[in-house]
Design a protein around this nucleic acid. Structure first.
Lengths: 360, 360
DNA sequence: CTGTTAGCGCGTTCAG
DNA sequence: CTGAACGCGCTAACAG
């Protein structure tokens, strides 16, 4: 009761399997139109569906592209995934999805699984970590990727290269100017904001977070402001919420204290989701934005754009990032075309909105 | 320069490929521990990665599960995808992702592609459509699914069966009580809301939308309220926004009109994303919620929970839905276990929040 | 232009 | 308990 095979189609059409293969798949040479039609009819009537596994085995190329994310329900990754999916579709490839929660060990597992499935390429979308506890995991991940590339696989990493990875043939990095953009955000904010700044960052060692923190501090410095204090918490909504609670307590203390000359705080959360969490915490403590504190994020997540007060942030073309990563691992021409389309690589845009307006 | 094969491992270990296969994969028969260790060492030193394509060919079972969504960046689908992914991972299966934009023709394509890859099962997460224009597409999709099931594939559809599909062996439907829940939402709203209701629905013929519209009307009826007018627009944020603009105009007209006795409107958008769009439109027209109008959604999308005013909605366990669909298509035991775990199937919960509070 | 042959890498009978 | 042979479905070299 299994699906019908090419051989069966060929038999029904009264030709050899090779001929059937030539007409049903884009072979270089075209059989006669008369016989071709017969084969097509046979295939149709049998409901023939080619076995991609067998094709892959024979051609050693699967048409599969593996995508590794921390969490597909996180809108950041969902947006990147959309780009990957769209580009894959254009290239007639299919996306294999793996979610890892961000641990290098699980990422290594995912790479191995993709390698086993003979995925033609792999896109790693999640932020890299260089924490000590991840050191071993990173090394193993690097080794796995290295082997994968040596076997002809293509890899694209968003943001930073995998820590410790040598850069073999077929290893691409889609650079995201997190640091520079965070610096520009700081510069723009410094223009309209007199008070102090606080940064709500992810765990130390998360490269994306670290870049944004560093860039923001640089921006402040160039604007002649003193460095911001950095609060560390989880790189998600709940981390932002925790940090927000802490900040709310401080703000309320300052407000009720005698030294109420303390200027208002501007909070920079290293991503939008954390910023929303922090904002929720402030609100739950009875504070209002931007009256009692300003807040800015990073990424410009689409779903969050209707949030009020509108969140100041840095727009990142997440979909393009996914698309670019995919194209980089695709056929030669596609990668070049992508490079030609956006020569400088990914770029973002500081977007100031209501949440950081100085007016009380 | 390709990956090393089982044969190479066997040669290095000085055994036959069959033996190597037996030790490296969970075969029924266990070779001697001494030789097993030698094989493992050889595999390790060669960096052997089994070829899943070949395994699949030999065993005719790929360990792949195909997931079809309208748009992976839509938080609804992203949440379902997370559940599917999690369940797949537990079963040591991998997820193949396809996004179709909702058209039956593209869904058919996706099913065919999954079938070609010999996915063991397919989960279809997007709402079904019974519009006339989709009739032909639905029929072809149904035929494709039918064939897939006949060839031993497992299918799970979230919400409604594919229109026109016979229900072959291996065809499961994860039922979602949209109608009943919408009815309960209407009932609860009717308790605290005196004014009229308006429904912002998706295009007519979108089954999920239709169910929610119908259920809401039923709920109103049972509560002794008159039926709500139904506005139709796209089943996404932008559709909600369009409808919101229209409603804003009406509300403003009513407010400035002499007959200002017109009671306030309560808007029910058939999903959260549309509700947020509608809310944004009202706001952009200078109206406030719930002062000038109340609004409720459906789904309880996680990312939207920090939205203010907090959105009244119906909580749907999206992740569980994905998980259940996946388990239903899995090994016999898994499906039964899932059924045992939630015997009545999916259930939701009406959640009233600030956006529909009657107090001005 | 078509048919035949030989693998792709692995699981799984069968003998030994 | 091990090894040799065959087949999974298809493509790519040859031969006709």
């Amino acid at each position: 009761m299994a699906a019908s095979t090419l051989t069966e189609v060929a038999r029904l059409a009264g030709v050899s399997p090779a001929t059937a293969s030539r007409v049903l798949n884009g072979s270089a040479r075209k059989p006669g139109e008369d016989i071709a039609e017969r084969v097509r009819q046979a295939a149709e009537s049998l409901g023939y569906v080619p076995n991609a596994q067998a094709q892959g085995l024979a051609k050693s190329s699967s048409g599969l592209i593996g995508l590794i994310v921390h969490d597909i329900a996180d809108p950041y990754f969902a947006a990147v995934a959309r780009g990957v999916q769209a580009a894959a579709r254009e290239q007639h490839r299919m996306v294999l999805l793996a979610t890892t929660g961000g641990g290098p060990a699980e990422e290594r597992e995912a790479v191995a699984a993709f390698a086993a499935r003979r995925a033609d390429s792999i896109v790693i979308a999640g932020s890299r970590s260089c924490r000590d506890e991840d050191k071993e995991g990173n090394a193993e991940l690097a080794a796995e990727l290295d082997r994968y590339c040596r076997n002809g696989g293509q890899v694209a990493v968003v943001g930073h290269p995998v820590v410790g990875a040598t850069a073999p043939e077929g290893y691409h990095v889609v650079k995201v100017p997190n640091q520079e953009l965070a610096g520009r955000l700081a510069a723009e904010l410094a223009r309209s904001w007199d008070g102090d700044f606080v940064i709500v960052g992810g765990p130390e060692g998360l490269l994306t977070s670290d870049d944004r923190v560093r860039g923001f501090q640089e921006g402040l410095d160039k604007a002649g402001r003193r460095p911001a204090e950095v609060l560390r918490s989880a790189f998600n909504r709940s981390g932002g919420y925790d940090a927000g609670l802490e900040l709310a307590a401080r703000i309320k203390a300052a407000q009720s204290g005698d030294a109420h000359a303390t200027a208002k705080l501007c909070i920079f959360a290293v991503n939008d989701v954390m910023a929303i969490g922090a904002a929720a915490a402030l609100r739950s403590e009875g504070l209002r934005i931007p009256r009692d504190a300003a807040i800015a994020g990073f990424d410009d997540i689409e779903t969050l754009r209707d949030f009020r007060p509108a969140l100041s942030t840095v727009r990142l073309p997440l979909e393009d990032i996914g698309r670019l990563a995919t194209l980089a691992t695709g056929p030669r021409s596609a990668g070049d075309a992508a490079e030609a389309a956006s020569p400088g690589g990914i770029t973002g845009e500081v977007t100031l909105r209501r949440s950081t307006e100085a007016a009380a």
